[in-house]
Design a binder for these strands. Structure first.
Lengths: 248, 248
DNA sequence: TATAAATAGGCAAAAAAGTGCAAAAATATG
DNA sequence: CATATTTTTGCACTTTTTTGCCTATTTATA
């Protein structure tokens, strides 16, 4: 069998079954696993498939969602980088959805080994691409507007875990009003998340600071860390720092 | 043998077998391999064949592989459209992941009002965009390779529902071997899905027909509908139809 | 953390390809 | 017809490609 034929065969198997094992191909085509590995390497640099330990995966399965224009993306990236400091190897992390949290999911260091819980579909999609984190999706009804799980079953599930850290992307935060939002179902879930976690970090652009909405998620004193794009010594944060929130 | 005769012979062999080896041709025509190589070089600059190390490949063979992705996508879209006929307003539909199912998710008519259950992140992402369907995500550990929920909790959840229809994107289906797959965790979940649903429809391109993998999801007699891109009267389906599967 | 599988990188043998050359054959030209 | 010119072909040689094997590392997973 010619090399090109072999590679075509491999691609066909991948498109057919979404994944192949080097060992299987080696047996089927009757060449050494080294040869298969070299083929997979070539095809992967040609962007025809995704090479993984032990074989290869179909590309179509792993193409990413289109990133739409995100408001203040640079600020959100900065926030994400700051938030990384809170996440350590072996941690159990519970995260909400929201563009800032998704940005964080994208930049998690590949070496990080941790367990993430989330009910957000876009966030889960990003976490799932990470090689070393274990992902537990909290299922139930999906809220269309926020693409996040809501409902009693999800809340029960959240109550049954005890994560080290909750990363909350929020809509509004204010010293007096606390963390607030405007979707009843989402608020119930976020409430449960804050309650369950040992520590809670709020991720938000400063624009949302000192604003409030109609439904309350938690008080300021339940927030352990506040992460924004501005320097932690900025005047804006004095009152929050006094209230016991650590500013990052 | 004249040079032109020889080249015509080579082209004939290529069209017949899709590939030729320089060494074979040298023996058959009784000229040196150098001459064959020069012939192949000439024919390849004339765009009559594709020269590769060791011989040559037919043009159609090669170009069909380049276009395979698009070709398969068309097939999957066709399958998705056929599958639509099974889905009625008010139904509870349980779906797996896989590119074909995701294609279906993309083309659900906006007017359709139904409840969808899934454990696939990409599929959920598509369902979530639909205005009128209610989406319940089945949560648990997410399998990285297939981006689908796996694990005992997910299976228990599936067992607790009684959907009207299960839409299964499969990796391999065969009359004797039944529906098979290659990931243990995924197989457990799919098994539960088939068990739970009143009716099961298998969505697959015909290329996956009559192929099998190592782990069994269910027997052919548990499959109610088989949906492929080919006409339902195609010879390929006789045996399946005889086994009681309705071909769409 | 320990163990087995998978991988990368170096090496060598074999196959194939490129190169230059010269003999043979075909073709052109006076 | 004789000679010059071009084309074709095979051969000797070097270079490149392909492949399998080996060993040290890395990776997956219990």
């Amino acid at each position: 069998m010619l090399k090109k034929e072999r590679q075509a065969f491999i691609l066909k198997q991948i498109n057919l079954h979404n994944r192949v094992l080097s060992s299987d191909l080696s047996l089927e085509i009757n060449v050494s696993e080294d040869t298969i590995r070299r083929d997979l390497l070539e095809l992967s640099v040609e962007d025809k498939l995704i090479k993984v330990h032990g074989g290869a995966l179909s590309k179509s399965f792993h193409s990413s969602f289109l990133r739409e224009d995100i408001y203040q993306l640079d600020a959100k990236k900065l926030i994400a980088h700051k938030a990384l400091n809170l996440i350590k190897d072996g941690m159990f992390v519970l995260t909400s959805g929201g563009t800032t949290v998704i940005e964080l999911a994208r930049i998690l260091p590949v070496a990080l080994k941790a367990t993430f819980f989330t009910g957000s579909i876009p966030a889960a999609y990003e976490y799932a691409k990470h090689p070393n984190i274990e992902l537990i999706f909290i299922g139930d009804k999906i809220s269309k507007s926020s693409q996040i799980t809501v409902g009693g079953e999800a809340i029960m599930k959240i109550n049954s875990i005890k994560p080290d850290l909750c990363l909350l992307g929020v809509n509004a935060i204010d010293l007096a009003a606390g963390v607030t939002d405007n979707d009843w179902d989402v608020v119930q879930v976020k409430k449960a998340m804050v309650e369950a976690a040992s520590k809670t970090a709020v991720l938000t652009i400063t624009e949302k600071l000192n604003s409030s909405q109609k439904l309350k998620i938690c008080d300021i004193n339940q927030v352990d860390y506040l992460i924004t794009e501005k320097d932690h010594q900025h005047d804006l944060f004095h009152a929050y720092a006094s209230a016991g929130v650590e500013i990052l």
